Computed example of a mutant assay.
Amino acid sequence: MTETTHARLLIIGPPGAGKGTQASRIAERFQVPAISTGDIFRANIKGGTPLGQQVQAIIAEGELVPDSLTNEIVADRLEQADAAAGFLLDGYPRTVDQVHALDAMLAPKNAALDAVILLEADVDAVVARLLKRAELEGRADDTEEVIRHRQEIYADQTAPLIELFSERGILVSVDGLGTVEEVAARIAEGLDAKLSSRVGS
């Protein structure tokens, strides 16, 4: 394994591609915190914090949490001591505007994202995986129609991001189907190649 420190990473991929599982492994390997905006929101909602109450009210209306609030939460999290040597973002940025907001957060530290891991997965395979999970966990609301709609939203939202990160030369595309170990090995190989080329350039 290539010895890498201060890695600032982002993982993106469709719902059901196993991002959470891989994120924890990557974060452990690089000794950086895995930062999931979803987890931060859920923790605040559960804790009944002012932020949690604000987010819960937005979600209850069926709306998306606005960029301004999400940016504020991420900026605060990245200022914490454990993120000084790097981080792995999951769930943020979701839009091009959020990418620019993240750039602005990192600029004062002369920092930027080092690599973006894109987990790619066949839509039908992911839908089948999520339907099976819904059945096992008794999620009656997770119908095939709902799951496919989420996949379409993801594809629409992330296409501009994928293009942007590809232009920046930091995108690492990985086949997200297979066992956890197989996918983890592909990610490790892709990151090693990308990060060593950036260090050498």
Score class of each variant (00 low, 15 high):
143 T>W: 02
62 G>E: 12
80 Q>G: 08
37 T>C: 07
91 G>E: 07
104 A>C: 10
105 M>E: 11
29 R>G: 04
136 L>K: 14
85 A>V: 05
125 A>M: 15
35 I>C: 13
62 G>K: 13
26 I>A: 05
35 I>D: 10
47 G>M: 12
124 D>N: 14
32 V>R: 03
21 T>C: 09
123 V>A: 15
140 A>L: 15
121 A>P: 11
125 A>D: 14
124 D>V: 01
131 L>D: 11
76 D>E: 15
96 V>Y: 10
39 D>M: 06
81 A>G: 01
149 H>C: 05
20 G>P: 01
140 A>W: 07
78 L>K: 05
96 V>D: 07
37 T>M: 02
144 E>Q: 12
97 D>F: 10
66 P>V: 08
7 A>Q: 07
145 E>M: 05
72 E>R: 00
66 P>G: 11
11 I>W: 03
100 H>V: 13
125 A>T: 15
72 E>I: 00
97 D>Q: 14
122 D>C: 06
31 Q>L: 00
90 D>H: 00
124 D>M: 06
144 E>S: 07
30 F>W: 01
7 A>V: 06
67 D>V: 00
146 V>F: 12
88 L>S: 10
46 K>Q: 13
90 D>N: 01
11 I>C: 06
96 V>E: 12
128 A>V: 11
134 A>V: 11
145 E>R: 12
27 A>H: 09
5 T>P: 02
34 A>V: 00
28 E>C: 05
88 L>M: 12
100 H>A: 13
121 A>F: 13
59 I>Y: 00
134 A>N: 04
8 R>P: 04
52 G>F: 06
40 I>P: 02
35 I>K: 03
61 E>T: 14
117 I>A: 08
149 H>W: 10
12 I>P: 09
61 E>P: 05
111 A>D: 12
120 E>N: 06
138 G>N: 14
5 T>I: 12
65 V>S: 04
30 F>T: 00
45 I>M: 15
45 I>W: 09
83 A>W: 09
87 F>H: 07
8 R>L: 03
49 T>E: 03
42 R>I: 00
74 V>Q: 04
4 T>F: 14
74 V>D: 09
83 A>C: 10
33 P>R: 00
18 G>C: 08
73 I>C: 02
51 L>S: 05
56 Q>K: 15
146 V>E: 08
15 P>S: 00
55 V>P: 03
128 A>R: 11
6 H>V: 03
134 A>K: 02
147 I>E: 09
71 N>V: 14
76 D>N: 14
80 Q>A: 14
106 L>S: 07
